[in-house]
Design a protein around this nucleic acid. Structure first.
Length: 955
RNA sequence: GCGGGGGUGGCGGAAUGGCAUACGCGCUUGAUUUAGAAUCAAGAUUUUGAGAGUUCGAGUCUCUCUCCCCGUACCA
């Protein structure tokens, strides 16, 4: 039989679907294993070859685990709510639901071409009402819970109300924005609205003031991805931060647990570090400074309370609410000018600002320790969003404060003597306190503790922890997302929907543009907004993270209409054992999912504290980008393109590289890729603006559809392109569709090739030229079964020792390497095995059958076909990974490298049981060794059993 | 600046502190072929970014420097 990948793939794709071989059910007799891919956002452009890299790896691992006897849950679905679909829908006037459906169908087809073992019966997608029913339900649970700091878990709001009724909030220790305390009587005296507002300060989903990107020109709210450098990407109009009441997630309540539990999970250090930086925990103290002649005080957060004697001035963020209030009249003009200057700057400009700027506001605060008056300034280096938006400036021990003080000639008092710690910078918590009466002579750490205590005694502040992490803005003024299951009465009190009333379906509309007042398009659908009881629905929708924060739980029991998943399913599947996805989700998705999971754990909805035990970030597959050079100046009124070779020779010509479709290029991927005449013509067809352009290369000039060779014999153009390696993207015109590769080389070769490119976690360029090696391997594997004349070669003969050794060493290598996710070396091992068998001329069933099973996770199609050919019933993917016979791998003799002073000089075979004395004697007797030890004293001979021999000589 | 990762042939990359460059691409030569493609066979390249240390022995561990990639950004 001839190897024809297309007919084999079609046959087995059909059979597998018919027999549902990847369908998985709870099976208490088998251990479970859950392998999850980050579900894709189904964009209109389909998959490119970079997407499946992680899917191939997870599929191999899933298949391997099945062969090991595990019951493997390996599902796939779609993150189908979101901006791009909505944009596409607006532009093309198609409903987002339809766009989503089409895109999902494309993705599914592309994925099935690659032979993934997903149980498609469990597919979920976030825009499916039967899915978002439970997203909404979880949001309602968050709304109805608060975080109790005594038990360190979330508890029901109704229990909190019971406590309030009994004793107020005086004994409650909760993570809350409620500042005032009250007793039972006070609580009883609150009206409905007041109670509602107090409880809002405790809820894990709460209403608060947030900022949106408001574009006055467009009269609409923009999402972050539509804004760049403070301007609308689409219209370039200025975008301002506009306050708007929105929903928030109180993720900060879980900051400590999210940070601490990182230690319990098997994630890369890079990823853990990203999360921990994002959470940004810092210990210190918040301290209040009195303002001279004002009732108000300034609260600052500092990690260095020990340096308070050196706090010679204060700085507020220009946006700080106290600025207008305490600013002296004499300074108003300058301050307003400065605030306007800061506001006018884009985020990017402000970040890039190297110059120190700021103005005094003519007010003074009192340093509670020195009791001296210190001036209050505003400066852009103090950020409104970090800490309290105000600092006590200690120029002696903070570089930024130092620069500021130096520029504006503010006093600097040295308070830490670092002479005992040479090389220590201002930020190192080292040294001895000086010029600080209460703490002189103390070490920094001791002084911090002392001041914290003192501050608490003085009732002007307290030791505390500050987080960079902010509560998450959970509202979007957009159509294509989950509606909030919340409505308001005429007083603005909010009510959540009951479980029986979920899902609250997204109403149908054709108007997806946000309304003029910045509210979501839903606000325009009055029949939906206004309820019979007079309540009005929330019209914001949820952001993308809502649906993606818990989808892995739904896969456990996707058909359940009574619960997010049954207890039985959750108890059996527990958590995700292996999660594979891109590092672009290192922070947002993975942090929110962990937060939701911990919350669900607290309220008894999931049995584990963390959702993803092990995580692997696959690297990015990069693509070659091809450019042609366009001269900046027109030549004789025409655009002029130049060959890369010519540009290199000329040093006075200014050129712009223009990315072109890689399909136009000859020898794409090679060093001297180029455009021939045909390529130039394709380029002109694609970019008609350049139809009259001149294309010049060393072979000649192409202009207005005519090629004029520079010398007679060269008839074709060779416009050498400039090549770079970069991200595959639409804008770089270098996207490669896996369908095309699969059609040419087959899915098995495609899968193995992606693995063979390099370590899974590493980014690497897509080098299609080398797929030939893997493609050849697949054919050579087939050739062990059928020769060129299509004659069947497999025999029932007993294998010899050498063949068995090859088999078992390959099995062992593959098993070990799969378990450490080193798939590229597995492919090498298979190649070596085939090379070896070929050399031995071995086509024995006893060797080929177990080898084929081991290969099955990598190349599911060809192995299934060969399994059938070998006369087996059922699917190879339901068989068992072969047992490795270690005894076969034991060597009788071992080749020892013999080195002198660590340099290898000879190689000699010894029986495994050779004595050290015998080995020493023979080693010293070798000519090659004698040469190197002659006339020198042998000081020592090191023999490492089964490894090597090293002779140490003097001199 | 800070944090994380990395630097090995022409290229992608192998290597529990123990024979550096497995496996593949590309290249060279030969066989087959009218030629090409395909297939088969044979072969070449280097001393692991620089320097020091630990060790019998370092690509691997430690330190210093250097360059590249990723994340983050005045975090008080």
């Amino acid at each position: 039989m001839r190897f024809d990948h297309q007919s084999i793939e079609n046959k087995w794709k059909r059979n597998w679907e018919r027999d549902k071989i990847y369908k998985v059910k709870i099976d208490q007799s088998k251990p479970k294993y859950y392998v999850l891919d980050m579900f894709p956002y189904p964009s209109g452009s389909g998959l490119h070859v970079g997407h499946p890299l992680g899917y191939v790896a997870s599929d191999i691992f899933s298949r391997y685990k099945r062969l090991q006897g595990y019951n493997v849950l390996h599902p796939m679905g779609f993150d189908s709510f979101g901006r791009p679909t909505e944009n596409y829908a607006i532009e093309n006037n198609i409903h987002p639901a339809v766009v989503t459906e089409n895109n999902m169908a494309t993705y599914k087809k592309q994925l099935s071409n690659l032979g993934f073992s997903f149980d498609w019966d469990r597919q979920v997608y976030t825009s499916d009402p039967s899915y978002y029913k439970w997203t909404q339900w979880i949001v309602v649970q968050l709304y109805n819970h608060y975080y109790d700091l005594k038990s360190n878990k979330s508890k029901a709001i109704k229990d909190l109300v019971a406590i309030f009724e009994k004793e107020g909030n005086v004994n409650v220790k909760a993570f809350t924005s409620q500042e005032e305390s009250f007793d039972a009587n006070a609580w009883a005296s609150f009206n409905k609205k007041e109670k509602h507002d107090v409880l809002m300060n405790y809820r894990l989903v709460y209403k608060g003031l947030g900022y949106v990107n408001w574009c006055e020109d467009e009269g609409t709210v923009l999402s972050n991805d539509q804004v760049k450098d403070g301007r609308s990407l689409r219209t370039n109009a200025v975008v301002e931060q506009r306050p708007m009441v929105q929903w928030f997630l109180r993720i900060t309540a879980y900051a400590d647990r999210l940070l601490g539990d990182l230690e319990t999970i098997d994630w890369s250090t890079a990823l853990k570090t990203s999360q921990s930086n994002w959470i940004g925990r810092s210990e210190g103290a918040s301290i209040n400074f009195k303002i001279v002649g004002s009732e108000d005080h300034i609260e600052v957060f500092t990690t260095r309370p020990d340096t308070i004697y050196g706090a010679t001035y204060m700085v507020l963020a220009p946006e700080h609410e106290l600025v207008q209030k305490i600013c002296a009249d004499s300074h108003k003009e300058k301050v307003e000018e400065y605030v306007a200057y800061v506001k006018a700057k884009s985020e990017l400009d402000r970040m890039a600002e190297k110059e120190v700027t700021g103005v005094p506001i003519g007010a003074f605060a009192i340093n509670p320790f020195t009791e001296e008056q210190v001036p209050i300034w505003i400066g852009e280096y103090v950020l409104k969003d970090y800490g309290t938006g105000a600092i006590m400036a200690v120029p002696s021990d903070d570089e930024r404060d130092f620069n500021f003080a130096t520029k504006f000639d503010l006093p600097i008092v040295k308070v830490v003597d670092k002479s005992g710690h040479p090389g220590a910078g201002p930020h190192d918590k080292l040294g001895t306190l000086i010029n600080s009466p209460l703490i002189n002579g103390m070490e920094v750490k001791e002084a911090i503790t002392f001041i914290c205590k003192k501050v608490e005694e003085m009732k002007i502040g307290k030791a505390g922890v500050n987080y960079k992490l902010r509560d998450a803005n959970f509202s979007r003024q957009r159509y294509w997302g989950e509606p909030f299951p919340i409505a308001f009465d005429s007083d603005g009190l909010s009510y959540t929907l009951n479980k029986e009333d979920l899902p609250l379906e997204l109403p149908s509309t054709s108007d997806f543009i946000p309304s003029k007042d910045g509210r979501s398009p839903l606000s325009k659908i009055e029949s939906w907004v206004n309820l019979p009881n007079g309540h009005k629905r929330e019209t914001d929708t949820m952001p993308g993270v809502a649906g993606s924060s818990w989808y892995y739980l739904r896969y456990m029991d996707p058909w359940n209409n009574e619960a997010m998943a049954s207890d039985e399913a959750k108890d059996y599947w527990q958590d995700v054992d292996l999660y594979v996805g891109g590092s672009e989700h290192a922070v947002a998705h993975l942090l929110y999912a962990r937060f939701w999971h911990k919350f669900l754990f607290d309220i008894g909805q999931v049995p584990t504290n963390e959702p993803f035990k092990k995580l692997i970030n696959q690297g990015m597959i990069q693509g070659g980008i091809e450019f042609i050079y366009l001269m900046k100046n027109l030549k004789d009124g025409h655009h002029h393109f130049l060959c890369a070779g010519l540009v290199a020779q000329m040093n006075d010509v200014e050129v712009t590289p223009i990315p072109i479709k890689i399909g136009f290029v000859k020898e794409y991927g090679a060093k001297n890729s180029f455009l021939n005449l045909e390529g130039i013509k394709s380029f002109i067809d694609w970019r008609p603006a350049y139809k009259d352009a001149i294309f010049e290369c060393s072979k000649g000039i192409f202009h207005k559809n005519k090629f004029t060779p520079k010398s007679e014999e060269n008839s074709d153009a060779k416009l050498v392109t400039h090549s770079e390696i970069g991200k595959m993207s639409k804008s770089k015109h270098n996207v490669i569709n896996p369908d095309d590769v699969v059609e040419e080389h087959g899915a098995d070769a495609f899968r193995m090739f992606e693995m063979f490119l390099g370590p899974i976690e590493q980014s690497k360029p897509w080098d299609i030229n080398s797929i030939g090696g893997v493609s050849k391997f697949v054919r050579r594997y087939w050739a062990l079964f059928y020769d060129q004349n299509e004659k069947y070669l497999v025999t029932e003969e007993d294998p010899n020792q050498e063949e068995l050794k090859l088999l078992h060493s390959t099995l062992k290598k593959v098993k070990d390497d799969i378990e450490r996710f080193s798939f590229n070396t597995c492919v090498s091992a298979f190649m070596e095995a085939v090379n070896g068998l070929k050399k031995m001329n071995c086509s024995k069933k006893a060797i080929l059958q177990p080898l084929t099973i081991a290969l099955a996770p990598f190349a599911p199609f060809i192995t299934e076909e060969l399994w059938e050919i070998l006369g087996n019933n059922g699917s190879i993917h339901k068989s068992t990974f072969p047992t490795i016979d270690e005894s076969i791998l034991v060597e009788n003799t071992i080749a020892y490298p013999i080195s002198v002073n660590g340099k290898k000089r000879a190689l000699l075979d010894f029986p495994v049981d050779a004595s050290k004395e015998e080995m020493e004697r023979q080693a010293l007797d070798l000519e090659a060794i004698k040469k190197h030890i002659e006339g020198k004293e042998v000081k020592k001979i090191i023999i490492v059993p089964k490894r090597m021999i090293n002779i140490v000589v003097a001199g």
